[in-house]
């Protein structure tokens, strides 16, 4: 699959394997995840039944803080934010309203936000995280794997962190030690030691 450094689907049934390669490719493409996932190994065994996906993500975009797109200027008891990039203005306003209340947050014009809440420092506002792409990315990735897996596999275990992820699903209960052994084994195939 274009975009992925490593992509393998293994299955005891050759026809099913070919179909799952296409399904995985289509789903990742539809959800714009081809640029995010670096390695992906999928195992589908309908006999067990078991679906295991392990993978590694590329370096993800970092968190977006207020200082990344706005100049924060303290003046007397007010803090004025000059917005440089309007993209993050809506989540910023929501965040400020939630923290300080609407009465303490004013937007006199399109690119200016004034915070009048007492005791707030410029440093505190500059460090506010407005957007964390990893959160939505994780949700998208897990949604993609749910779409890829055979539908009846309702018992799931999933994990994400340190740039790698795994997703295990089955129709039956999954014993913890079995999951760990299988996942470690599959991770070794893509060159990752747990």
């Amino acid at each position: 699959m274009s975009g992925l450094e490593y992509f393998v689907v293994e299955s005891p049934e050759a026809t099913g394997k070919a179909y799952y390669e296409r399904i995985a490719g289509d789903v990742l493409q539809d959800l714009n995840l081809l640029q995010v996932v670096e390695k992906l190994h999928i195992t589908v065994d309908p006999k067990v039944p078991l679906f295991v996906a392990v993978g590694v993500t590329r370096k993800l975009p970092s968190q977006v803080r207020v200082r990344d797109f706005a100049a924060v200027v303290p003046l007397e008891s007010r803090i004025t934010l000059s917005i440089g990039d309007e993209t993050y203005l809506a989540p910023l306003l929501t965040l400020l309203w939630d923290r300080y209340g609407k009465a303490e947050v004013d937007q006199p014009d399109r690119f200016t936000v004034v915070v009048t809440a007492p005791g707030v420092t410029a440093q505190e506002i500059e460090d506010l995280v407005v957007l964390d792409p990893t959160g939505s990315l994780y949700r998208d990735l897990m949604y993609a794997l749910i779409c890829i897996q055979p539908e009846g596999f309702k018992v799931r275990k999933q994990s994400y962190g340190d740039g790698r992820f795994f997703f295990v699903a089955s129709e039956d209960t999954l014993p913890e030690d079995v999951v760990q052994t299988i996942v470690a084994e599959k991770f070794r195939l893509i060159g990752v030691e747990l």
């Binding site: 049934e13 026809t15 309908p46």
Partner: peptide
């Protein structure tokens, strides 16, 4: 019946 990909299933 529009079924899936595996003979086993």
């Amino acid at each position: 019946y529009v079924l899936g990909n595996f003979q086993e299933c």
